[in-house]
């Protein structure tokens, strides 16, 4: 893995609360699509993005059943990006801050997502061409 071809993204936004999460996913997706090896460090609320127990629901206000609604789940976005990276034979290392996972009881992440530490974030950044951080309020 070349340092010049690796990008790291760290973010904090939990799912379903703001536009930032979606934008981070769009950036990560673009990086994967462009063929970069990508590290993602999910910190604090962002660890919930890959929580395996997210579930779709129907939406009576929209007048749609569960299938028609096809509600987005960030865990599916993570899975899709992992699958795309694997298909392109590039690396997508998605690490959830372990202590952040524990305090939220969010240990059940989807396959392909791992626990990480702040030391992992520093290592990711040091071994990347660059790092973009997206905090939260």
């Amino acid at each position: 893995m070349s340092k010049d071809k690796t990008l790291t993204f760290a973010f904090m936004e939990p799912p379903f609360e703001s536009a930032r999460g979606t934008t981070v996913f769009r950036i990560v997706s673009e990086a994967v699509r462009s063929g970069f090896d990508v590290n993602v460090f999910a910190y604090e609320g962002a660890v919930m993005m890959s929580f395996a127990r997210q579930q779709q629901h129907a939406n009576a206000v929209h007048g749609r059943d569960i299938v028609e609604e096809n509600h987005p789940l960030p865990k599916d976005w993570v899975a899709a990006l992992l699958a795309e990276a694997a298909a392109k034979n590039i690396k997508l290392d998605w690490a959830n801050c372990g202590l952040c996972v524990d305090e939220r009881g969010a240990g059940e992440a989807i396959p392909g997502v791992r626990r990480g530490t702040p030391a992992d974030l520093w290592k990711m950044a040091a071994e990347s061409a660059n790092t973009l951080v997206v905090g939260t309020h």
Binding site: L7, T23, R26, I27, E30, A31, S34, F36, A129, N130, L132, V133, V134, G135
Partner: peptide
């Protein structure tokens, strides 16, 4: 949005 990736990959300081 690819502009963000391009600048990041080029080593720019990208600040949110």
């Amino acid at each position: 949005i690819g502009t963000v990736v391009e600048r990041t990959a080029a080593g720019w300081n990208v600040i949110w």
